[in-house]
Design a protein around this nucleic acid. Structure first.
Length: 314
RNA sequence: CGCGGGGUAGAGCAGUUGGCAGCUCGCCAGGCCCAUAACCUGGAGGUCACCGGUUCAAAUCCGGUCCCCGCAA
């Protein structure tokens, strides 16, 4: 074991990396030289300039924060710091070669899928959309590609039938926080075996767009049920009712095998529950939210919107 | 000052030429029925977000405050 502290730079932006950052800060083996995160952005209804979640945490621990617009232009600065290790968790930029070469223990990335499946940004949602029964985190040594580096370790979790994108996000985030430090220490002590990724099994996920949450009722109820869970809580699954955006927050996990009795997208009552006809089978709505209104149980929603039953969602 | 919707009974919503506050569901009581989540009758339940103004009279008009939400980012 090294008797000197490992001089480490942490790079990340959203909440996802917080547990990892905190575990590294708390671990006496690491000396966090500083944190690199995205520049502050205007956020929310009031367009308030807001710090990234990682910046808030770093600041609260009095850790130096840098927010370069382009990482490439910051390579020289990093070099001067002489880091032994760089840990990247969800930064949203690819690290240039000039930076990858700096730390002697290289750059390590923690990714929210079981690579080589679901490289890229929407890895967590992809696992739910595809109906996978498990997902996990991959800790890997970075190379110049997007999530293509050799794997140091993987940790799996099961995807429950009621798991949403947000829940998996949190579970994986916590899992990463627990496992990151010990796995990285093993790696530095040369106790881990690096396995190259099998590129033939690789898949790529693109960054989610708001429109990715738009429901196409032509699809099967099974697919839409997964979409609703995967997109929760951002960007959220939505449809259109009376020219207003209607968010579908939660559906019943049990699909109704009902076909040919209603038009696609038609809302109907079934066993005192609100259902929508899909391209294949039908889906029972549980929680919905109309634009400008609060979250509502679907069955309560119809009390004040008598025309909902029988309407066609588009 | 980014744009926009909203706050009315336990829930979901109507209700602005100012004039006794309504609907659907739920709840309570009774009735019908072999029976019911069905149906009928009756009932309870509101400081109309808050503060101030105009008026004989404000949920409604005017000014201000708080809170919730959609878009955009």
């Amino acid at each position: 074991m090294t008797n000197k502290k490992i001089k480490t730079i942490f790079i990340g932006t959203p909440d996802f990396g917080i547990p990892v950052l905190i575990s590294l800060i708390s671990d006496k083996n690491f000396d966090i030289l500083g944190v690199i995160t995205q520049p502050d952005k205007k956020v929310g209804r009031q367009q308030i300039l807001t710090e990234t979640p990682i910046k808030k945490i770093a600041s609260s621990y009095n850790i130096k924060v840098w927010q370069p617009k382009k990482l490439k232009e910051f390579a020289d600065e990093i070099k001067k710091l002489e880091p032994d290790l760089i840990v990247v968790v969800a930064y949203a930029q690819i690290l240039p070669k000039a930076i990858l070469e700096i730390p002697k223990y290289s750059c390590i990335n923690i990714h929210g899928s079981l690579l080589p499946k679901y490289r890229g940004a929407a890895c967590i949602q992809a696992a739910i959309l595809n109906g996978d029964e498990e997902t996990g985190i991959t800790i890997m040594k970075m190379d110049e590609g997007l999530d293509t580096g050799p794997i140091i370790a993987q940790e799996k979790i099961a995807i429950e039938t009621n798991d949403t994108g947000e829940k998996i996000f949190n579970k994986l985030s916590e899992l990463a926080g627990e496992k990151a430090a010990p796995i990285i220490l093993d790696y530095i002590d040369n106790k881990s075996e690096l396995k190259p990724q099998d590129n033939s099994q690789a898949s790529l996920t693109k960054l989610l767009d708001k429109d990715d949450g738009k429901i196409n009722w032509q699809k099967s109820a099974t697919e839409i049920e997964r979409l609703v869970r995967a997109m929760h809580s951002w960007p959220g699954a939505f449809t259109n009712f009376n020219s207003r955006t209607l968010k579908i927050l939660e559906t019943d996990q049990n699909i109704l095998s009902i076909n040919n009795r209603h038009q696609t997208g038609e809302v109907f009552l079934h066993n005192n529950e609100v259902a929508v006809q899909c391209g294949q089978d039908a889906l029972v709505l549980k929680k919905i939210k109309l634009e400008g209104k609060n979250e509502t149980a679907a069955i309560d929603f119809i009390n004040g919107h008598r025309d909902f039953i029988g309407s066609i969602l588009r």
